[in-house]
């Protein structure tokens, strides 16, 4: 589904954030990316839906090569959903409108049909009764669940999560992870940047360690956490476990 090879990125200020990062994600696979702060995890997954550009290397998403062609980028973004650390819900729209905006506008689907689907999705993430409220009236955990439902409403083939629980109070982390775990069981392709070890162990098919702009190690969760091969992975695990 995603094939990134030797991706290098320099930020406009000259900072070399990605230094040849490579990763392949297969259909239906759940890949968890871990790594120290500033290692380029966010930058990397944001290149997958062209929120960040890159200067060297290549990325193919769902058979389409990422290039500067705006139409191509829009086509890829329609198929790739993203959930952000800060939720980024649209505060001036109700929960239901947050979900229906893109399917109606981008996919040109009839509103009534999209609303039915949106209500079903809200039901699934457990907040159907909040559909008419505004994002500012919900708790962080509820907002993040709305954000996930919003991404799902576009029926994407790939979901990207950038630290979906990092700005949540501890008691709300579980409810969001449960929703993501349920999605994983439905064989949706997912790339999740997170520091939640328990979640990675239970849900990931593969865990990836990034450091200083490159993918250092990838392995199934069991070997990743119990028998890391690289010294940098070992040091990272010592810090977080």
């Amino acid at each position: 589904m995603i094939r990134a090879e030797g991706v290098e990125k320099w930020y406009p200020n000259g900072f070399h954030a990605l230094r040849g990062a490579s990763l392949t994600v297969n259909r239906g696979e759940v890949v968890v990316i871990m790594g120290p702060s500033g290692s380029g995890k966010s930058t990397f997954i944001r290149t997958f839906n062209a929120l960040e550009d890159f200067q060297k290397g290549s990325i193919t998403v769902d058979g389409l090569a990422l290039s500067n062609d705006v139409r191509q980028i829009d086509a890829i973004r329609r198929e790739v959903g993203m959930v952000f650390q800060q939720f980024n819900l649209f505060p001036h729209l109700s929960v239901l409108e947050n979900l229906t905006l893109a399917p109606v506008l981008v996919r040109k689907r009839p509103r009534a049909e999209v609303e039915l689907q949106a209500m079903a999705l809200l039901e699934r993430v457990g907040i159907a009764e909040q559909a008419e409220k505004f994002p500012g009236q919900l708790s962080g955990g509820q907002q993040q669940r709305v954000a996930i439902a919003r991404a799902l409403c576009m029926e994407p083939r790939i979901l990207l999560f950038d630290e979906p629980t990092s700005s949540l109070d501890p008691e709300m982390v579980r409810e969001v992870l449960d929703v993501i775990q349920a999605l994983a069981a439905e064989a949706i392709t997912m790339v999740v940047v997170t520091h939640e070890v328990r979640f990675a162990r239970q849900v990931a098919h593969r865990v990836v360690l990034m450091d200083e702009g490159v993918v250092v190690e990838q392995a199934d969760p069991e070997s990743f956490f119990t028998a890391p091969r690289h010294e940098r992975t070992q040091r990272f695990l010592e810090q977080i476990l």
Binding site: N49, L51, V70, D74, R77, R78, V80, G81, M82, F84, Q86, N88, L89, F90, P91, H92, L101, A102, L105, V106, R107, R150, A151, M154
Partner: peptide
């Protein structure tokens, strides 16, 4: 916030749609 435009774009809205429905109203 920048994240508003990014969220809109990542949902597949083009620049004009994102501006008109998300950024300008706010």
């Amino acid at each position: 916030p920048r994240g508003q435009l990014e969220a809109a774009r990542s949902l597949g809205l083009n620049q004009a749609q994102a501006l008109v429905t998300v950024v300008i109203p706010q």
